[in-house]
Design a protein around this nucleic acid. Sequence first.
DNA 1: CCCTGATTCGC
DNA 2: GCGAATCAGG
Length: 138
Amino acid sequence: MAWTEDRIDQLKKLWDNGLSASQIAKELGEGVTRNAVIGKAHRLGLKSRPSPVKTDGEKKKVAPKKIAKKSGKKFVTLLDLTDRMCKWPSGHPGDADFQFCGKASEPGMPYCAGHCAEAYQAQPPRRDRRQLQRQPIL
DNA sequence: CCCTGATTCGC
DNA sequence: GCGAATCAGG
């Protein structure tokens, strides 16, 4: 696939938007790999970014997007949600404030580490479940 | 293992 | 110029 002006523009835009190379690759689709994106970006002389994925000892916020203006919670809309982002919902589906956590989800998980903890809590009230019906072994 | 960007190097 | 392979790092 050749890098058309259109694609390059999209690349620049997404890259500038802070999307990761792999995300941009997916966005562009058409068998574009993250390597292609990075390679092109590098070639275009786009700003280098020493792996933004370092837990960063810095407590500085990057302000991912100014989408979730309301609620201090940095949630994102469905449009900003991508494959490996936490899909922890917030609000009612259909509502304007229906958003998702959007943080990087744990590998293989639909949610981020924090929400996985919430989602996969161990059986809480096991107390009043005894003799529920005392089913005869299957 | 998951991921990130950076660089190399044959095409 | 392109991008897969590779490298370096979290």
